[in-house]
Design a protein around this nucleic acid. Sequence first.
DNA 1: CGAATTACATAACCACGCTATACGTTCCGG
DNA 2: CCGGAACGTATAGCGTGGTTATGTAATTCG
Lengths: 136, 136
Amino acid sequence: MTSEELGSELAAAVTEVARLLVREGVHVNRTSLSVLATLLSGPRRITDLAACEFVSQPGMTTLVSRLEDEGWVKRQPDPTDGRAVNVVITKSGERMLEKAIAARGEVLRTRIDRLEPKDRRALAAAVTALRTVTRD
Amino acid sequence: MTSEELGSELAAAVTEVARLLVREGVHVNRTSLSVLATLLSGPRRITDLAACEFVSQPGMTTLVSRLEDEGWVKRQPDPTDGRAVNVVITKSGERMLEKAIAARGEVLRTRIDRLEPKDRRALAAAVTALRTVTRD
DNA sequence: CGAATTACATAACCACGCTATACGTTCCGG
DNA sequence: CCGGAACGTATAGCGTGGTTATGTAATTCG
C-alpha cells in the first residue's frame, strides 16, 4: 500500500471514529475540550489559545465567553498588561473535562474490548504514530 | 494500559487527526462525503440516508438540497411510491468524491512519509482495527 | 371510505465558526 | 515625552450545518 492510499484509508477510518465520538460521546465540542485541557497547565491569553486551536481570535473570544457562561473558565485581567486577559480554568471546568475524557474513553472501551488481541495491540501502537502525525 | 485509558488516548489522537483533516483538507464536510460514498452503491431515500448518517430527516433534506445545488446528486421520484424521493449521485458527484478522497489522502501522505517505518506499519495495521471499532 | 401512518419539505431556531472593524493599551522613535 | 504604530480583545454581521415542531401529500389498513 502506498502512503497516499494509507492516507486515504486512515482519513476515512479516523473520520468515522470521530463521528462515533461526536454521536455517542459527551455533547461538548472538541475545541472546548482542547482549550480546557490546555488550561490545565496554566492560564493563557485569548490570542495564545486561538493560535493553539487554529481558530481566529474573535472565534476564541466567543468560545471563551461560552465556557465562562458554563462556569468552566474565568477571565482575569493581566496585572502586567492592561490589554490582555488571562483565561483560567475553574474547579468546575476541571471536573467537567475529566468526566468528558472518561466518557469519551468509555465509548471506545466497550468497542475495544470486543476486538481481537492483535487489533487491540495495533491500536495501542498507533496512538503514538497518530500523535506524531498531527505534530507541527 | 487499560482499555479505558487506550480509549481516551485513542479518542484524543483521532480527534486531533480529524481536526487536521478539517483544517487542511477539502472544504467539503464529512457528512456530504459520507452521503456521496453511500450513494456510490445505488440510489437511496432521504430517510435511509438520514438513518445512515445519524442526522435528522430535515437535516438530510437540506443536505441533499445543498448537494443538488452543487450538481453532485439528483432527486428522482420513486415510481412505486409517490411520497418518496430517490437520491442519485451524478457523474460530477462521483468525480468530486474521488478528488476529495485523494486530497484527504494527500494531507496525510506528506506526514506519513515523515514517520519512522515502525510508525508507518503501526498505522497500516491500525486501519483495519479502526474500521472494526466503528462497525455496528 | 376514512383514519392512521409514512415520506418529505418548510419554518424557526441555535451552535460555532468566519471576516471586518472598533477600541483601549503598550511600545517606540524623533 | 509625545504621537503614531502595533498589539490584545471585543463587537457586528454573516454563513454553514445542524436541531425540533409542524405542514402536506401519498399510502396503508381496518
